[in-house]
Design a protein around this nucleic acid. Structure first.
Lengths: 125, 125
DNA sequence: TCCATAGTTCAAGTATTATAGAAATATCAA
DNA sequence: TTGATATTTCTATAATACTTGAACTATGGA
């Protein structure tokens, strides 16, 4: 992932309404939620909701599928995964910088964990 | 972490220059970098750099310490860690949604891994 | 003291983004 | 076909954020 793309994803999540929408969908799992259900939960006017849903869709953080008159939206976990991998790649130079995340050394992880074992998540030696 | 606070952090990172600054500092480790070194690497005019550094500082993603005429900036890993924990909390309902991150079920992790073992990171059963 | 350097703050212009009413589109149900 | 519902698009307005030259502050060196 490139910096510009990552910045677009982060900017998309950097708005309270959009972040709320995304968190709802992350918690909803692969089944997702209908747009109308999201709007009710967050109390957003339809045009405002639509604006934010299309923003999140455009950057690839969520995906919508039409079902008769409704649209079912779901989180794109893979996009979030890549974003977090980008944020934490080459982090902290081997220190245990992210105890809650255990996401250090994600470049090595991306390479199927074959090489260069990470010391992240352990106490610094 | 609350949604509003998380959105502020994400918005701070949702700008190409600020994300570049933050990534530089994440890679630099606890030693950090002087402001002038960041400016040189990114080719930003001093007022623009200062604007973004103070934004990142204000939300708590970086921290600056004066050393004679210079200011040494470093990433606040704990803030990023909490942000990622927020983004991934209660995610994916037990599916392996974040293979690169292995950051699922961070609420349980936050509670010192004592209770409710997570199925995240494994294949869905 | 005087000058150079590191960094910030000020000020003004420019650009982008968010909001939500009104109108439009699409689908279903009667 | 008519009406109701779900959602989007259009439009205008309002608000916010970014950029950078110029001026300022603080520090250290000559």
């Amino acid at each position: 992932m490139e910096t510009l793309n990552a910045a677009e994803l982060l900017a998309a999540l950097g708005h309270e309404s959009r972040l709320s929408i995304f968190r709802l969908l992350v918690e909803a799992g692969t089944e997702g939620l209908f747009a109308s259900a999201i709007g009710e939960k967050l109390g957003l006017p339809a045009p405002t909701l639509s604006f934010h849903l299309s923003h999140l869709t455009r950057v690839g953080l969520i995906r919508g599928q039409k079902e008769s008159r409704f649209i079912r939206y779901a989180a794109e976990y893979a996009t979030m995964d890549e974003l977090i991998a980008f944020l934490t790649s080459n982090c902290c130079q081997g220190e245990a910088c992210l105890p809650k995340t255990s996401a250090c050394d994600t470049i090595a992880k991306r390479r199927k964990l074959g090489d260069s074992p990470s010391s992240c998540g352990k106490e610094p030696s």
